[in-house]
Amino acid sequence: CKVCGDVASGFHYGVHACEGCKGFFRRSIQQNIQYKKCLKNENCSIMRMNRNRCQQCRFKKCLSVGMSR
Rank of each mutant, 00 (worst) to 15 (best):
V65N: 04
S28A: 02
N43F: 08
S28L: 03
E19R: 12
V3C: 00
R53G: 14
A8L: 00
R27E: 14
S64G: 06
R69W: 15
M49K: 14
N43S: 09
A8D: 03
K36S: 14
N32F: 07
C38A: 03
F25Q: 02
F11L: 11
E42F: 02
E19G: 04
C4L: 00
K37D: 15
M47P: 09
K61G: 08
M47L: 12
I29S: 03
K2P: 03
M49G: 13
I46A: 12
V65H: 01
K37H: 09
K60V: 09
Q30R: 05
H16E: 14
Q55F: 04
R69C: 12
Q31S: 10
S68N: 14
K61V: 01
E19I: 02
K61Q: 04
Q30T: 14
Q56D: 15
Q56I: 10
E19Y: 08
R53D: 15
C54W: 00
C57I: 07
A17K: 00
C62G: 01
L63M: 00
H12A: 09
L39Q: 11
A8T: 08
R48M: 15
N32T: 07
K60N: 12
K40R: 12
F24V: 02
I29P: 02
R27S: 06
Y13D: 09
F24M: 04
A17M: 01
G5E: 05
N52H: 09
R26T: 13
A8Q: 01
I29M: 10
V65E: 10
A17H: 02
R51Y: 11
C54R: 04
V15P: 04
Y13S: 05
Q55K: 10
C38W: 06
V65F: 03
K60M: 10
E42C: 05
R27H: 15
I46K: 02
L39F: 05
R69P: 15
Q56Y: 12
I29D: 03
K37A: 13
C62A: 12
R51I: 07
S64A: 12
D6S: 03
V65P: 01
G14Q: 05
K37S: 13
E42Q: 10
N52G: 04
I46Q: 08
N32W: 01
R58T: 11
E42M: 12
R58G: 04
G5F: 00
K60W: 13
H12M: 00
K2G: 04
K40P: 06
A17L: 04
R69N: 13
V15G: 06
C4G: 02
C57E: 03
C4T: 05
K37T: 09
G14R: 02
C62M: 08
F24N: 00
S28I: 07
M49I: 15
R53S: 14
V15K: 03
R51V: 13
C1I: 06
Q31L: 10
N41V: 07
V7D: 12
C38M: 03
G14S: 09
F59W: 09
K36P: 10
D6Y: 07
M47I: 07
A8G: 05
Q30I: 05
N41Q: 09
Q30Y: 02
N52I: 09
K36L: 07
V3P: 00
E19D: 14
S68H: 08
Q31N: 06
S45N: 15
C57L: 03
N41Y: 06
N32D: 10
Q31D: 09
V65W: 00
H16M: 14
C1F: 07
K37I: 09
R26I: 15
N41F: 03
L63H: 04
K40L: 12
I33P: 04
R26Y: 09
H12G: 07
C38R: 01
S64R: 08
S64C: 07
K40Q: 14
V3S: 10
R69M: 15
M49V: 13
S64W: 07
M67R: 09
D6T: 07
R58C: 15
R26L: 10
M47T: 15
F25P: 01
C4Y: 01
D6N: 07
G5M: 10
N41H: 04
E19V: 04
M47K: 10
R51S: 11
E42H: 09
L63T: 06
K2V: 07
E42P: 06
S28W: 03
F25R: 04
V65S: 09
V7Q: 14
K61E: 07
L39S: 14
S64K: 15
M67H: 00
C38E: 01
G5I: 01
V3G: 03
E19W: 09
R69E: 13
H16F: 11
I46P: 13
V15N: 00
S28K: 02
Q56K: 09
H12T: 06
L39C: 13
V65I: 09
K40S: 13
I33S: 06
K2F: 06
K40M: 12
C62E: 07
Q56W: 15
K37E: 12
V7P: 09
L63W: 00
G14E: 08
L63K: 02
M67Q: 13
G14F: 05
R69L: 14
Q31K: 08
S45D: 08
V3T: 00
N43G: 12
F59S: 02
K60I: 15
G14D: 05
E19F: 08
I29K: 00
V7H: 10
Q30G: 05
Q31I: 04
R58P: 03
D6P: 03
M47N: 14
I46N: 12
E42S: 10
V3W: 00
A17V: 10
R53K: 13
N43E: 13
K61D: 10
C62Y: 06
V15E: 04
F59E: 07
L39D: 15
C38L: 00
K40C: 04
C57D: 03
M67W: 07
C62P: 01
R69G: 14
N43W: 02
Q55N: 09
M49L: 12
E42I: 05
A17P: 00
F24R: 00
R51D: 15
N43Y: 01
R53Q: 15
E42A: 10
Y13Q: 04
L63V: 06
K36I: 06
F59R: 06
K36Q: 09
N50G: 08
E19L: 01
C57R: 00
V65A: 09
I33D: 03
L63Y: 06
R58H: 15
I29F: 11
K60G: 07
D6I: 11
N43K: 09
C54P: 05
C62K: 02
N52K: 04
K40V: 09
I46V: 14
A8C: 06
E42L: 01
H12E: 05
H12W: 13
R69D: 08
S68L: 05
R27L: 10
H12K: 00
I33C: 05
Q30L: 12
R27W: 13
L39H: 10
G5H: 04
G20D: 15
N32C: 05
M47C: 07
F59A: 05
S68K: 12
G5A: 04
V7S: 11
D6A: 13
G14K: 00
I33G: 08
F25E: 04
D6F: 03
V65G: 03
H12Y: 09
S64N: 08
Q55R: 07
K2I: 08
Q56S: 15
R58D: 05
Q56E: 13
A8F: 01
H16R: 10
G66K: 08
S68T: 12
I46Y: 13
G10D: 07
R69Y: 11
S45G: 11
L39T: 11
K60S: 09
R48T: 12
K2Q: 12
N43I: 05
Q31P: 07
C54T: 03
N32P: 06
M47E: 15
S64F: 06
C38K: 02
K37L: 07
V7C: 06
S68W: 00
S68Q: 15
L39V: 13
I33R: 06
N43R: 11
R26N: 14
F24E: 04
V7I: 13
I29L: 10
V15Y: 06
V7R: 13
F24C: 00
F59Q: 06
K40H: 11
R48N: 14
V15R: 01
F24W: 03
H12C: 06
F25Y: 06
Y13M: 03
